[in-house]
Amino acid sequence: METVTDKKIVIETRDIAKVYQDSKIAVQALRDVDLEISEGEFTAIVGPSGSGKTTLLNIIGGLDNPTSGTIRVAGRDISKLKDSERIDFRLHNIGFVFQQYNLIPVLTARENVEFIMLLQKIPVHEMKARSLHLLEEVGLKEKANVRPSELSGGQQQRVAVIRALASRPKFILADEPTANLDSASAANLLDMMARMNQEEGMTFIFSTHDQRVIDKARRVVTLEDGIIKSDEIRS
């Protein structure tokens, strides 16, 4: 099915199911999820609370294993990786942005941006240049040497996004990155992500409930009770 003109597929899930077995009650968080995501997409995963958004993102990001089904990321079956390989895989392939607590409190904004690059052992001069460039890009140049506690929620999330970007992952996963932001900051963050998606060609997958955020996505995957309800691509 793959043709030469098709964009490269970076994520491919086949019949993914996830069952949480908590004491006696089993919760089916995902079922029969087939999803393909190509390079450079800007995709929103939406759905009501408990529909399985976080679960899906965790599985795609290699933080969790599906109960059944296969997941290939950048051509590798990540459910077969050992714990230590999985951490390494995340380090080099996936950028994460969480709802909150993204940043290391004792490091400055700039050190936070450089942190993953340090773990990746990127040369110091390149690392410094990239972090400064990105901080400038998102208007936080003068906050470079400030610790997260002195940044607003929106500023913290922007730092988290550029930290993910700076490490040049295959794609960035953001689980409700705007949930703790007011609408202006949320819009601002989304605009920034959209710009980075355009400029850097970075693949973004993010989950959200927020209609205004959904409106900015170019593809919207809707989950309900762990099943993909709809998958629409907008132009």
Binding site: L63, R90, L91, H92, I116
Partner: peptide, 16 residues
Amino acid sequence: YRELGMLMAIGMNKWR
């Protein structure tokens, strides 16, 4: 706890 979880999620290995 959360901070350490975040560090592991973004790729800091157990040894570190």
